[in-house]
């Protein structure tokens, strides 16, 4: 698979001597849906800022679809669409103007960008508000506006920094579906998020940053396969018996629910069989912790 983004030995030391990136190497394939995870201050936003030209790097090399960022800066910028974490538009501009201006900066005339702006604003359910000032939009609408703006010049690579923060569940799911469609159409998507289930359900590959270093870069499946145990919460509609005699550990949470830890050699079918034999009927099963969350905390040493 051709490489969409290649980062080699990227370092960033801020003026206050904070070393935000410590020689990171990263590779994202074309057409990938890639998660870049890390806790606050891990260096995700710094890395994105450098890739997109918002921050100066200290050293290192970035290539985007074969173009060197230092030598072919404008070609690189044309290929990338960025949806940043913070709102970064003029709140006193009408929202359609924001899109048309952004297209103009990429050399696309108003007459050419207007139809695309209409499609994007309709997709983001903002068309009826196109003449409104951006400041009048809700938090979720502002995020959708930034997504539309990131797509107005039809980039090959879309970088999303916390795209669904503050967005309600319904809109979040519609955004996920839209992003998946874009990815299926061939767009490479790089995502940072604090919602780990978002990364787990959307992304095929993942890198985890911790304190300015890449501590893991692999496929989502391989990473999740590393989980040796998983904690589940089982709930019954009936009151649980006082004594449950099974050969695996259980932790009673209340009179209707308890927690079990699935380890290798123990699968859910077996658990259900044994519980049924004890007269325990399970109505709901849910994960105590998100699987990726557990791994993430282990890898970043914060568990």
């Amino acid at each position: 698979m051709p490489i969409a983004l290649k980062i080699s030995k990227l370092c960033k030391i801020y003026d206050n001597k904070l070393s935000a990136l410590k020689s990171i190497d990263l590779q994202v394939s074309q057409g990938d849906f890639f998660a870049l995870l890390g806790s606050n201050g891990a260096g995700k936003t710094t890395a994105i800022g450098i890739i997109c030209g918002l921050l100066n790097k200290t050293s290192g090399r970035i290539e985007v679809l074969g173009f060197d960022q230092d030598l072919q800066t404008n070609q690189v910028k044309k290929l990338i669409g960025l949806m940043p974490q913070e709102f970064n538009f003029n709140p006193f501009e009408p929202i359609e103007e924001i899109l048309l201006n952004q297209a103009g900066y990429y050399g696309i005339s108003r007459s050419k960008s207007k139809p695309n702006a209409e499609i994007l604003l309709k997709k983001m359910q903002l068309w009826s508000k196109r003449f409104d000032m951006a400041k009048s939009l809700s938090g979720g609408m502002k995020r959708r506006l930034m997504l539309a703006r990131a797509l107005i010049h039809q980039p090959k690579i879309l970088i999303l920094d916390e795209p669904t923060a503050g967005v309600d569940v319904e809109i979040r799911h519609s955004m996920w579906a839209y992003l998946q469609t874009l990815n299926q159409q061939g767009m490479t998507i790089i995502l940072t998020t604090h919602y780990l289930e978002e990364a787990e359900s959307l992304c095929r590959n993942i890198a985890i940053l911790n304190e300015g270093k890449v501590v893991e870069q692999t496929s989502m499946n391989k990473l999740l396969a590393k989980i040796s145990q998983q904690t589940l919460i089982l709930e019954s509609l009936e009151v649980l018996p006082k004594q449950i005699n099974v050969d695996f550990g259980i932790k009673i949470l209340d009179e209707n629910s308890f927690e079990i830890t699935l380890e290798s050699g123990l699968n859910l079918n077996l658990v259900m069989e044994k519980l049924s034999a004890q007269g325990v009927n399970i109505s709901y099963v849910r994960s105590s912790k998100n699987r990726l969350e557990t791994l993430f905390l282990n890898l970043t040493g914060k568990n």
Partner: peptide, 16 residues
């Protein structure tokens, strides 16, 4: 104001 509300980033990310 473009610096203050970060809308200057619209120009910085684009090939202008």
């Amino acid at each position: 104001l473009a610096k203050f509300n970060h809308s200057i980033e619209e120009l910085l990310v684009s090939p202008v």
